[in-house]
Nucleic acid binder design. Structure first.
Lengths: 249, 249
DNA sequence: CGAGGTCTTGACCTCCCTCAAGCCTTGTGG
DNA sequence: CCACAAGGCTTGAGGGAGGTCAAGACCTCG
């Protein structure tokens, strides 16, 4: 027992922002140390979200943003006639709920694709904190404009590209984002189904499956269910005709 | 000459925000009168933009937002391989440049589709002003989240809808936004070409033209070049299967 | 008035969707 | 721990919506 303190401060227990391994990717980009500590005060305890559960649903009142700590989410839009569109996949270090920021209710639904943990950032407190830290406001602007640019990149994909190009862009985007988080850029486990990929890319699940098979036959990738290995990154990039910008999140 | 003052104050000359007929649609939504006057101070003289000219181009440094005073813009994204995607059409009372807010350079290009006038809102001054008027920050959040939601609505359109539905959604959206500005909801003059409509909706110009013709044959609309008359609004709405949300800007 | 851009329409073709059948994976309960 | 069910994936065959190519009509503006 020696050397171990009886009492661990709450602050340590939840290993807040200053210690978070995601702080480069997440919110406190460019904040001074004491500012980050202030922000940390605002962030409530980490919240677990079980696979399949909704973090929030479209129409629910907006109170907080959520930073993904671990795990993987999809966000979806439900049209009135039942058609569902996946609008994004979100991994550690990314912020959920920006499409409701400033408004009163969530516009999309966020579903956990595996067991996840998120940090809750109550908007009220962020709002008052940003009066003390002006750069925080600016950072939110930046995050939101990045989201707009990301969506517009996807519009370009949906409006102009053929199935092969869409899948190539999708794989490269996943690879790049995983690499930025310290994972392998060349092999990964997809958390979403073919149907969800298809919805995101404006394709049917059969087309996704067929195109993966074709990529495999051409030696570009290796597919084993949800395990994907990128065998020839350059060839995949060539499929895009050097078209899509990096489109990082 | 009698009764006409020799000197008209600059403030009057440019008939600022407090007197602007667009103030309901534009920025100062929900500001107190004196706050609006403060904001007005920030807004530089109105700037004319000739048809075909760019208000800003992708890659240029971001300094200001622009409020459309009169006229009609398109925003486009240029992929590296030359493919161009129209990401939006913008009319009086709408704000341009939100996709660069907080960042350093514009992400898209804004082209005037007719002779236009815009109000310039230098970001530096908006930024400092929002320290005095906290609700201004909140309003920008709202505008940006609305833009995100708008883009996501378009993603749903691009990912799920067939040509007829896309055109119907487009026509209804135009009709609604024009009506909100005091114009007729049932007849209007399109400022953009079929190719630009097609790019926006993820279709080829021939498909746009053919679909318009089919709508006309079915008695839904009357087409005379760029003049469009909506003859049967309800039938057009039915085409959507009550799908797309209003998607106002 | 003429030139260039814009629009319409036709014919053909391609890519992706639809429908269908069967296999594989995952999770659950006996 | 195995069996079975249910969801997820693959693959094939066929069809249709929209793309491509082409020709000609129609504006519009210098």
């Amino acid at each position: 027992m020696t050397g171990i303190p009886d009492f661990i401060p709450l602050h340590e227990l939840r290993s807040g922002c200053p210690a978070c391994s995601l702080r480069e990717l997440c919110l406190p980009l460019g904040l001074a140390r004491d500012e980050m500590a202030q922000l940390d005060e605002v962030i409530r305890q980490r919240i677990p979200v079980k696979r399949g559960e909704a973090l929030f649903r479209a129409g629910q009142p907006f109170h907080s943003l959520y930073a993904v700590r671990t795990g993987f989410f999809k966000t979806t839009l439900l049209a009135e006639d039942g058609r569902e569109q996946v609008t994004g996949f979100h991994m550690a270090g990314e912020l959920l709920g920006l499409d409701a920021l400033g408004g009163t209710q969530h516009a999309c639904t966020a579903i956990a694709l595996e067991d996840c943990e998120v940090c809750e950032l109550p908007f009220q407190q962020l709002d008052s904190l940003s009066r003390e830290i002006p750069s925080l406001t600016r950072h939110f602007y930046k995050l939101m404009s990045r989201e707009i640019v990301r969506d517009q990149g996807l519009m370009l994909l949906l409006g102009n590209m053929r199935a092969e190009e869409r899948l190539a862009a999708f794989l490269l985007n996943m690879s790049q984002r995983l690499e930025a988080r310290g994972f392998s850029a060349k092999g990964f486990h997809l958390r979403m189904t073919r149907e969800e990929i298809g919805s995101y890319l404006g394709l049917k699940l059969e087309t996704v499956s067929r195109t993966f098979s074709r990529f495999q036959a051409d030696g570009l990738i290796k597919v084993q269910g949800k395990q994907i290995d990128l065998l020839d990154l350059n060839a995949i990039r060539l499929l895009l005709g050097a078209c899509a910008p990096s489109e990082s999140h």
